[in-house]
Nucleic acid binder design. Structure first.
Length: 138
DNA sequence: GCCAACGTTGGC
DNA sequence: GCCAACGTTGGC
């Protein structure tokens, strides 16, 4: 099982909307590096849901329920993909970018190193640490 | 294949 | 609103 981080600007699609819908298709990725990650996602993998631009914090955990398939919003020949994700758990204490930056265990996170990448892998140690900080794990 | 110009993302 | 970082495009 692998771990990921997916970003959304809350005024476009927020965790609140996500929770309401329960399951949604994650589309709109138009970046080759991000697409590689989308294609590598397996059913059952989990992802941190991060609010970019506004909020600037990890607000919840999502789970992959359907692996990569052609993005229904563009012609299939273009090769872009979407996955389906389900809102799994809200963070009791959202983990802010500030906190992540200040945490020695999270210094190597892709979120800090490649801040523009909208779908990125998360290491197991980082995953565990974020869940701790968020109040989802001891 | 290089690189300048341009567009986009995202933090501040 | 600004700007750095990064990706993409297009001329050569």
């Amino acid at each position: 099982m692998a771990y990921w981080l997916i970003k959304s600007e809350p005024f476009k699609y927020s965790w609140e909307q996500f929770e309401e819908e329960g399951t949604t298709f994650w589309d709109g990725v138009r970046n080759y590096a991000a697409r590689l990650h989308l294609r590598a996602m397996k059913k059952g993998d989990e992802a941190l849901f991060y609010h970019s631009n506004e909020g600037l914090e990890v607000v919840g955990v999502a789970q992959v329920v359907r692996e990569a398939y052609p993005d229904p919003t563009v012609p299939e020949e273009e090769g872009w993909v979407a996955v389906d994700v389900r809102a799994k758990k809200r963070m009791p204490m959202p983990v802010s970018l500030k906190k992540i930056k200040g945490d020695p265990m999270l210094r190597e996170m892709a979120l800090l190193k490649q801040s523009r990448l909208s779908v990125q892998p998360v290491r197991e140690e980082e995953w565990t640490r974020i869940l701790q900080l968020g109040g989802l794990k001891k």
